[in-house]
Design a protein around this nucleic acid. Structure first.
Lengths: 204, 204
DNA sequence: GTTCCCATGTAACCCGTTACATGATTTT
DNA sequence: AAAATCATGTAACGGGTTACATGGGAAC
């Protein structure tokens, strides 16, 4: 509940499936939670000893011959407790999106219309790539009986990409229609403070 | 193209609309690019002097009486050059996406079905809030003639949220079917590990 | 037989977030 | 008169990314 980052909780969650080394954990994360919560190897390697220090996982040195020695980790009862407390607890941080394409798009009035069309084409290509990738993940889990949640999580990504491909078409139409008045917000912009409607939001 | 982070480029872009202080810039960012590229005040205050050091913006001290003195910034010709070079250049970083809800969802086999339904309800509420917020942004720009790109960017967010509300319905159906069919909500994906070529790996 | 990839990590750096600071003005 | 907000910033902390290291297979 207190002090553990989402990344650490995700690590605990993955270790709750089975014990493994940092390397294996990273690889597993990359094809599962990594789609909506990326974790780089270095981060995992930093967090694992911290979790061990805190008593949430226990590590074991494993000697190997043809490969470098490794350290495998397993969740402790205390670890399971915090994991389940987090899962049972309410709330979650608001999703964070960072989209560099949209930044370029927003300032597209500084580029020619040809370049803008090109940019949109690049974005479409990127989305289609992600779509087939996520589709493959979803498809792969179809056969597996215990993979419902994983498949649905992949579908989350599929649905957004599909919607965005639709958005591109919408944009192309709009740009076609209004070939003249392109530009960002013009004139003085009054400052708006965040609408203080709900008091909570963002836990931890 | 060289060395400048997307955040810095976004700052340059906003300053290209008109010169302003860090405070104003932050406020403007919050209601524009902040929806897809968040920039906290502190970051802006750190980047602005850096950009000045690099010669991309020029700052001017402005004394004020009833308010604290401020420093306003304007893009230099060199700044415009790098901004336009970036816009003209190809590519953009793949969109970054972090969703804590999905992490919980992925490990939902460790929670009861009631809690899972609750979690989905929370997510729906969050999405609906974001949707009305973004809808308001899109609506506000409808009157403004030069705000086409801004409105379309807001629509990008609208479309994804709409799609995700649909996803929730889809999930609820799937869970309903699963619960009646198999009696138990399935566990997390048991993913194949990266191909192991090592025979003396320990088994469990 | 070099060159690339695997499996395992460590170290440094930078970006982003949270907390701290402050005098004037508005609200309760 | 106290409390909140405005309009400015600064400082510290920690999460996340990139670069560095390494010895043995696999591939060309």
């Amino acid at each position: 509940v207190e002090g553990l980052s989402t990344t650490s909780l995700a690590i605990l969650g993955l270790l709750s499936i089975r014990g493994m080394s940092g390397y294996e954990l990273t690889a597993l994360a990359e094809i599962s939670v990594g789609h909506f919560w990326p974790m780089h190897r270095s981060l995992v390697y930093r967090e694992l000893p911290r979790l061990e220090q805190a008593g949430y996982v226990s590590g074991t040195h494993v000697a190997q011959e043809r490969l470098p020695d490794k350290r495998t980790y397993a969740v402790t009862p205390a670890g399971r407790t915090v994991l389940d407390a987090w899962l049972a607890g309410p709330g979650f941080g608001r999703a964070r999106y960072r989209n560099e394409f949209l930044v370029k798009f927003f300032f597209a009035s500084r580029m020619g219309p040809d370049r803008l069309r090109e940019l949109l084409a690049e974005y479409r290509a990127a989305l289609e790539l992600e779509l087939t990738e996520l589709g493959a993940v979803a498809k792969k889990t179809e056969a597996i009986p215990g993979a419902l949640l994983g498949r649905l999580a992949a579908l989350h990504g599929v649905r957004t990409r599909e919607a965005l491909l639709g958005w591109i078409a919408e944009v192309e139409e709009a740009l076609e229609a209004d070939a003249s008045g392109r530009g960002v917000i013009a004139g003085p912009v009054r400052m708006a403070r965040p609408a203080r409607t709900d008091p909570d939001e963002e836990r931890r």
